[in-house]
Structure formats: C-alpha cells, structure tokens
Simulated scan of single mutants.
Amino acid sequence: VETEKWYRRWFNFSYNADDLERALASIPSNQERINFMKSLYENKELKLKFIFVSKWFKESVAESDTNTIVNNFSIIHNVIDNHLFQYVEKDREQRKKVLSIRPYASHKYANDLSVKAILELSRKDYFEELEFSIYGHGPLFNKILEPIRHFKNVSIHNHFLSQEEVAALHKQHGIFLCPTRLDSQGVSMCEAMSSGLVPITNGVSAIPEFVNEQCGYLAGKEDYQGLADAISFLYFHPEEFQKKSLNSSQKIQKQCGVEQILKKEINEIIN
C-alpha cells in the first residue's frame, strides 16, 4: 500500500472531502516512495530479486506505478493453510447459507455492495429461505449494515474471529460473499475456497487469478446486481453449487496450498 499511486484508493476519499484533502496532501511523500521503488526495480548493482503476490500486482501496480519493468522476479501467492481449511463435501442445502467475513475499516472491501445485493434478493419470493451470516469489525460497520439489520434471516456479528472459528463457520456455510474494489490476492476468499465455499466476488484487480467460472462467480466492477444474480443462480441449481464447491477447493489448494507455496519459497532461498 505504501508504494502504490495515491489515487488507487479513490474509494476511501470519494465519500468525504476531508479524506480527499488528506490524500492530496500526501501526494509528495507518496511520490517519494514511488521514486524509491523505481530506483530499486532498476538497480543492477544490488542483484535484487522481487517476489510479488500476484501477476496483477507486478504488472498493474509495481510496474505501472513506477513506469518501469521488473526483470528479476517470481510470483508466489500468500499461503493458504489447507490443513486447517479442509474440504468437506457440501450438502446441497448449504447453497442457501451465505457467509461474509470482512473488515469494515476501508471501502476497498466493498461491504456496501454485499448490502445492496441482499436488498436486491429481499425482493425474491425465496429470500426467507436464505441465511446470511455477517462477521466483521471497523468504523464503517454500523453505518454500512444498517439497511439490512431488520431482516430476520441476516445475523450480524461485530467482532473478529480466530482462524479456528473461521474454519468452523466455513463448514456451516456454502457461499462466501466477498465483493471487492482492490485486492492483490484476497486471502480470506482463498481460505473459504479451500474449505469448499463457492466465492461470489467482483472480477477486479488480482481476483481473476484465483477465481474462474468453474469454481465461482465474478461480477463486474461495482456490480451488486451480479452478486445477487449469482446467489439466485445457485439457489435454483444445487447440482452446480456442489460441483463449484469441489472445484473451488481443488483449484485453490493446488494454487496456494502449504506444500506448493513452501516448495516455491524454499526454492527461492536455496537458489
């Protein structure tokens, strides 16, 4: 975050004039950091190698923001503990149980899109058959969730969870609702996928490197209707839900599992 162009986090100041003023005031120091990273990327004497968490971050952030090309690099994703977040076959009824675990400290997590999607679904005849479990914490929590507090099938929990508690919740739910405006990977989404939840998110930034049509749903940028439509589709297609659940776990464990990532990291250290 410290070496991205200041305007990448537009969503954090577009709602508030004071935030915009602070962002504008930070431009000189932001440019200093960008220049520093550019000098490192271009340095040929120090024999540096850069490890990026995703292809998107390398190309669309690091290289784009510094207007340079990084030649000596590897892509190694954040590891997902597939031993903790184990796949357990989902019952078809679990397609009706939607889980959201997100921070509420920034608009980048797009929790407002989740709220809008739930409001869209509330117009459906089958809405009361769905269950939404929302966990999180942060200064935006109460304001964002206020429009859906009155629904009896929406449970709201204003606190963070241990990894063990998260893994237990994964076993109880079938869908992971995790819209986003900016993600270099989406670790909580990947953990849910490892457990077999079907991710419903936005196809922005690095997310398409981890979610595809075979394992989840990628709505467009700012598209809350697409999020709602994906939940509706799974409601009417339980067999598709179970297939995507298995694909979701297999894809992310192969891509980000402990053995795979450790092998790549050890290879970097010894070579």
Rank of each mutant, 00 (worst) to 15 (best):
T3S: 09
W6R: 12
R8K: 05
S14D: 05
Y15F: 11
Y15R: 13
N16E: 08
D19E: 15
A23E: 12
L24I: 15
S29C: 07
N30H: 09
Q31E: 11
E32L: 15
N35E: 03
F36W: 10
Y41P: 05
K47D: 13
S54Y: 07
E63F: 12
N71M: 03
N72R: 14
I75M: 06
L84S: 05
L84G: 03
Q86F: 04
V88Y: 11
V88F: 11
R95D: 06
K97A: 08
L99T: 06
N111G: 14
L113T: 01
A117F: 05
L121N: 05
S122G: 10
R123F: 01
E129I: 09
F132Q: 05
S133P: 00
S133N: 14
Y135K: 12
G136M: 02
H137P: 00
G138E: 10
I144Y: 01
L145K: 04
F151Y: 15
E164P: 06
H170E: 10
Q172V: 04
H173A: 10
F176P: 06
C178H: 03
L182W: 00
S184M: 08
S184R: 04
G186M: 04
S188V: 15
M189Y: 09
S194D: 02
V204E: 00
F210H: 14
V211W: 04
C215T: 11
L218F: 07
Y224V: 06
Q225Y: 14
D229G: 05
S232V: 08
Y235H: 14
K243E: 10
K243R: 15
N247W: 12
S249M: 13
S249H: 15
I252C: 03
Q255K: 15
E259T: 13
L262C: 07
K263T: 11
I266M: 03
N271T: 12
